[in-house]
């Protein structure tokens, strides 16, 4: 039987506290990985490897944290994502909550899309599909 959402969250808490050296209590659903928990680029890869092991899942490159979604210059206009860019990112990250970001799709705010909830959503979807 697939674990409950709360069980998934607890395991994600374990993974993030080990990968980022933060206390359990610091890891809430709303925490952003970079801003609140201090993740750097290599940490994202570490998190992916740890999630794969903790949940016995395979996470293909770019699926949880899309890296190439914005490589097309048509997706970016100055500091903002174009509507086409936003659509592409949304379809690449169905597990993320875009409600705040799409009001002002400033590229510098993109890291805020990567929250603990984003990971929990992703893992839940992955486990259901398995």
């Amino acid at each position: 039987m697939a674990p409950s959402r709360e069980e998934v969250f607890t395991t994600v808490q374990d993974v993030l506290s080990e990968a980022l050296g933060v206390d359990h209590e610091e890891v809430s659903h709303e925490s952003t990985l970079q801003g609140d928990l201090g993740a750097e680029s290599i940490d994202f890869l570490d998190i992916v490897f740890r999630l794969e092991k903790a949940f016995s899942i395979k996470i293909p490159k770019g699926e949880l944290f899309p890296e190439d979604a914005l490589s097309n210059p048509e997706f970016v206009d100055g500091d903002k994502l174009t509507p086409a860019g936003l659509d592409t990112l949304k379809s690449a990250m169905p597990h993320a909550d875009f409600s705040q970001f799409e009001k002002d799709p400033d590229i510098s705010k993109m890291p805020d899309l990567f929250t603990v909830r984003t990971i929990v959503n992703y893992v839940e979807g992955k486990l259901k599909a398995a």
């Binding site: 890869l45 570490d46 490897f49 794969e52 092991k53 490159k61």
Partner: peptide, 10 residues
């Protein structure tokens, strides 16, 4: 080696 793919190894 615990994990190995095109990006990295653990």
């Amino acid at each position: 080696i615990d994990s190995f793919d095109e990006r990295a190894a653990v």
